[in-house]
Nucleic acid binder design. Structure first.
Lengths: 213, 213
DNA sequence: GTATGTGAACTATTTCACAGCT
DNA sequence: AGCTGTGAAATAGTTCACATAC
């Protein structure tokens, strides 16, 4: 184990490895080489070894990696051996999709509250969550010990909501609003801008000759 | 204008600049410096200039950039002076959210079709789009000249759908399924894995001391 | 023989810093 | 004087290649 800074890309790929390894364990495959794991994840063998190397030595020379051991180790590293409480702010289409998305719980991410400033959306029930008015946010965030906030409100409301969350000690924010949020250094923001992802693709269509012009 | 390869991050940031510039034009602000634009987008002045420099010389020494001119130039570069046809495969919660998301049309991305293999979802009407059975996909993709596909199906169906789209000449795919897609080199895939984004955040909570442990 | 772990080489990207234009 | 545009320097990230371990 070294303690050099881990590239963000590595962290994201470790989740990919874990997903694949979990699959392998289910299939009763006990051992895998970096080359095979790379094959399955569309990454190079060197990349796999280098990424894992940031966190320790998990392999056996000449043999590869024990899938069960690697799974356990990666889950520990990634904090997946425990659950995190998540709150969604904004209960429009996207917020609703997130609330009903089954993938989160499976991965240790419990959505425990949802908020909206629009009174027509307050009271809407999705799964076991009821949308609450924005005024309730401070109380509920603290009471439910929320550590991750998801921003799914329009761009112009995003900074205000962010400020509330930050003040309440929420350390990580997933931002779906198409705007750049200002936060202190100790808060981590991850931007997911769906339109921008698509727009970026359209750039490739313009520049690499498209099939349909 | 040089013709060196443009980093992917630059392309993504150009959209951020364009968004900000569009705002400035609306506010009747005619000129902006790289420093101010950087301030507004949480990026450095050097980054702004370098990014723009990949596409040409838009500024005036000593003065900055003319917002209207820059807006027009960036829209041209990014292919935003025309519209692209998009198809969504998978009409679950996420697919439905995408279908009703107003942000796409505004940005020249027309969702023109939606498909699902589940007969219970076929026929569902969202906005002006009716969900069609997967069997219709080949015919409709060609007829409507779709150039961007969005994959919002479960992981195990994703590769099959991708293969269909690729065979039909769709050049860009936005993939929401939590799996690695195999595509030929001339097809561009962008992965957006919502769970992984959240999971990545949980890693930061584990590693930077969290507020709520 | 086979596959890991890791420095070293390479490549990509960002930041610096300043010459040159207005 | 102020700010762009851009080589050069610095930093980050990926790939190579091989000594080492089993």
């Amino acid at each position: 184990m070294n303690n050099k800074k881990v590239p963000e890309g590595t962290i994201s790929r470790i989740f990919i490895y874990l997903r694949e390894i979990t699959e392998l364990v289910k299939l009763n495959i006990h051992t895998i080489s970096s080359a095979e794991l790379g094959e399955r994840t569309n990454l190079s063998d060197a990349q796999v070894r280098k990424d894992l190397g940031y966190f320790g030595q998990f392999g056996v020379s000449g043999a590869g990696y024990n899938t069960q051991e690697l799974k356990t180790a990666l889950e520990k590293i990634l904090g997946k051996d425990r659950a995190w409480n998540v709150a969604v702010v904004g209960a429009g289409h996207l917020g609703s999709a997130l609330l009903t998305y089954p993938g989160f719980k499976e991965r240790g991410l419990d959505i425990v509250a949802a908020f909206d400033s629009d009174s027509r959306k307050v009271g809407k029930q999705m799964k076991e969550i009821t949308v609450q008015p924005l005024e309730e946010l401070p109380r509920v965030i603290q009471q439910k010990k929320v550590s991750i906030g998801i921003i799914a409100v329009p761009a112009k409301e995003a900074q205000g909501v962010t400020d509330m969350l930050v003040k309440l000690g929420v350390g990580c924010i997933l931002n779906f609003a198409p705007t750049s949020l200002n936060v202190p250094d100790n808060v981590k923001v991850k931007d997911v801008d769906l339109s921008r992802e698509l727009e970026t693709l359209s750039y490739f269509l313009v520049n690499k000759k498209a099939q349909y012009a």
